[in-house]
Nucleic acid binder design. Structure first.
Length: 256
DNA sequence: TCATCCCTGTGG
DNA sequence: CCACAGGGATGA
């Protein structure tokens, strides 16, 4: 579910709750995560909470607790004591707890000493590197933008949205983009991400992403998931194709 | 570079 | 029942 805006919203909401607080214990509800508690010494003060791409990093003394939400994961903050449905892990703090809820159980949590993921530059940062790098790749631009080693943070929704705003067909070879198109793409990526951040992300369906406080994200996609519905610009029905094994939505008239 | 797999839930 | 799902690792 979560892409950069959802992860960033999660981190910003949790930061004031956990930074400087003592992590008292981990409660595990999924055998896949059974080894985690033994890897930490409790209590462990949270020194920092940060985002790298779509990863969430709790910095503890000498250790990093690294969470990736994948498709259906989310982090909730509450002061309750029960175990919410689909809980996989609970981080206990004196004044509340972070609950890792993940119905599909594809999310990952690990403890390491050093963050070692091959991530491209953050999608929210300076995108001037695209000028040079896109020219070298023959893969469809949609597939290129989804690869976190190229650019970190974009996922299936916001790639679709950015390519729509930029007026670029997702099937185009990355190397075929002309300078004006790349300029439009950079602008579109930042616009879409900033819109989504302002809306606290995208909640597509009921049981999906929520902020840690349980609020929905109110970003409304223009083309993602809109197959058959009229393009918001020209009215042409939005098409759905498959690219890189993922559903891909676009306007065949506006995106060339 | 592609298919397959990891999992479970939901909607048509 | 099958198709599909906001992600990513893996092996062919």
């Amino acid at each position: 579910m979560p892409e950069l805006p959802e992860v960033d919203t999660t981190v910003r909401a949790l930061r004031p709750k956990v930074v400087g607080q003592e992590l008292r214990s981990l409660r595990v509800f999924d055998p896949k995560l059974a080894k985690l508690p033994a890897l930490l010494n409790f209590p462990a003060k949270v020194e920092e909470l940060s985002r790298r791409g779509k990863y969430i990093i709790f910095a503890l003394p000498q250790k990093l607790l690294v969470v990736h939400l994948r498709m259906s994961g989310r982090l909730a903050w509450d002061e309750g004591r029960g175990v919410p449905k689909h809980s996989r892990l609970i981080l206990e703090f004196p004044e509340g707890r972070v609950v890792f809820i993940d119905s599909r159980r594809l999310g990952t949590v690990e403890v390491t000493e050093e963050f070692r993921e091959e991530l491209g530059p953050d999608a929210l940062g300076d995108l001037s590197f695209l000028d040079e790098v896109l020219a070298k790749s023959k893969v469809p631009i949609k597939v290129w933008l989804l690869d976190q080693r190229n650019i970190a943070g974009l996922g299936n929704i916001y790639v679709a949205e950015a390519l729509f705003l930029a007026g670029i067909d997702p099937r185009r070879q990355a190397s075929s983009l002309k300078p004006p198109e790349i300029a439009r793409l950079k602008k579109a990526i930042h616009q879409v991400l900033n819109e989504a951040l302002a809306a606290m992300g995208t909640t597509l369906s009921d049981n999906a992403y929520r902020t840690p406080a349980g609020e929905t994200g109110d970003y409304e996609p223009r083309v993602y998931g809109k197959e058959g519905l009229p393009c918001p610009i020209c009215g042409t029905p939005i098409e759905r194709i498959e690219l890189g094994g993922r559903g891909t939505f676009f306007c065949p008239h506006c995106q060339k």
